[in-house]
Amino acid sequence: MSANAPDHRDAPAVQDGLVQYVGAISRVTRQGVLSASIALEDLSKDHLYGVGPVANLRGEITIVDGCPYIAVLDDSNRPSVSQSFAVGAPFLVYANVAQWTAPEALKAVANLNDLERAVEDAAARHGIDLHSAFPFLISGSVLQAKYHIIWRDPDAGPHTPELHAKAKRYFSIADEASDIVGFYSRHHAGVFTHHDSFIHAHLVNHERSKMGHLDEIAWEAGAAALRLPLAPGAAPR
């Protein structure tokens, strides 16, 4: 079995609204389950969006409208982004969304808390149930952002929360056009969101040369636009 081959195929995907997920953050960080619970090749790729880590914590996965971007580090510890479905993930949150609302310009954002509130406010205006999980998309010019790629040492021994934090390699961008793929939920802490946030988001620049798990974000008013899943039968507005 390859390093990325799933060995938890008996664990079915769980669905909440439009969102599906397999595995859980807590199983990775606290139980040390690092092998793949799902293979990207097995997913329905039609208008697919998703985020998660690569199996064995050797990279990050961001799927944008059916295109899977994989961020890893090269032999010189420099980040590299490629496209491939030939990887697995210990946990993955994903959704197939064919139609989105029209882009809605956002106010200035200085941190992830601001981003979370912006998503909540827009979702409420569009009649989205905040007690149901949903994906969101943001595109625009990022003033500055910090993101990480998980890159665990294969010889590190049994995984612990301390080793998990140590395995994160941090990078930053500034004044760069980027996309954010995110998922919102008030009820999945430790599953696909962390305990201090209702969102799990990844950033990928428009050149598709930089990508990772979003840790810090800022943009100026009107510099970025948000899109939410469009309700069946509704027209973009």
Rank of each mutant, 00 (worst) to 15 (best):
residue 1 M to E: 05
residue 8 H to Y: 12
residue 12 P to Y: 02
residue 15 Q to S: 12
residue 15 Q to V: 05
residue 16 D to L: 03
residue 18 L to W: 11
residue 20 Q to W: 05
residue 22 V to D: 02
residue 29 T to S: 06
residue 29 T to K: 10
residue 30 R to W: 03
residue 31 Q to I: 00
residue 33 V to D: 02
residue 38 I to S: 01
residue 39 A to W: 00
residue 39 A to R: 00
residue 42 D to W: 02
residue 44 S to M: 00
residue 50 G to H: 01
residue 51 V to I: 05
residue 59 G to S: 04
residue 59 G to L: 03
residue 61 I to R: 00
residue 61 I to Q: 01
residue 68 P to D: 01
residue 68 P to V: 03
residue 68 P to Q: 04
residue 68 P to F: 05
residue 68 P to S: 07
residue 72 V to D: 00
residue 78 R to V: 05
residue 81 V to S: 09
residue 84 S to D: 03
residue 87 V to K: 09
residue 87 V to W: 00
residue 89 A to S: 15
residue 91 F to Y: 15
residue 94 Y to R: 08
residue 98 A to Q: 14
residue 99 Q to F: 12
residue 100 W to F: 11
residue 100 W to N: 13
residue 100 W to K: 05
residue 112 L to H: 15
residue 112 L to K: 14
residue 114 D to M: 09
residue 115 L to T: 08
residue 116 E to S: 12
residue 119 V to H: 06
residue 121 D to E: 10
residue 125 R to W: 01
residue 127 G to W: 02
residue 127 G to Y: 00
residue 128 I to N: 07
residue 128 I to L: 13
residue 129 D to E: 05
residue 131 H to P: 00
residue 132 S to K: 11
residue 135 P to R: 08
residue 138 I to D: 02
residue 139 S to N: 14
residue 140 G to M: 13
residue 141 S to N: 13
residue 144 Q to D: 14
residue 146 K to E: 04
residue 150 I to H: 12
residue 151 W to F: 14
residue 152 R to H: 14
residue 153 D to S: 14
residue 153 D to T: 13
residue 154 P to A: 12
residue 155 D to M: 06
residue 158 P to T: 09
residue 159 H to M: 14
residue 159 H to K: 08
residue 160 T to W: 05
residue 162 E to A: 14
residue 168 K to S: 03
residue 169 R to V: 09
residue 172 S to N: 05
residue 173 I to P: 00
residue 175 D to V: 03
residue 182 G to V: 01
residue 182 G to L: 07
residue 184 Y to P: 01
residue 187 H to R: 15
residue 191 V to F: 04
residue 191 V to C: 08
residue 193 T to N: 12
residue 194 H to Y: 15
residue 196 D to Q: 15
residue 198 F to T: 13
residue 199 I to Y: 10
residue 202 H to I: 14
residue 202 H to P: 01
residue 206 H to C: 15
residue 206 H to A: 15
residue 209 S to D: 13
residue 216 E to P: 01
residue 219 W to A: 15
residue 219 W to H: 03
residue 221 A to M: 13
residue 222 G to S: 12
residue 225 A to N: 07
residue 227 R to H: 07
residue 227 R to I: 07
residue 228 L to Y: 11
residue 231 A to V: 09
residue 234 A to R: 15
residue 237 R to L: 14
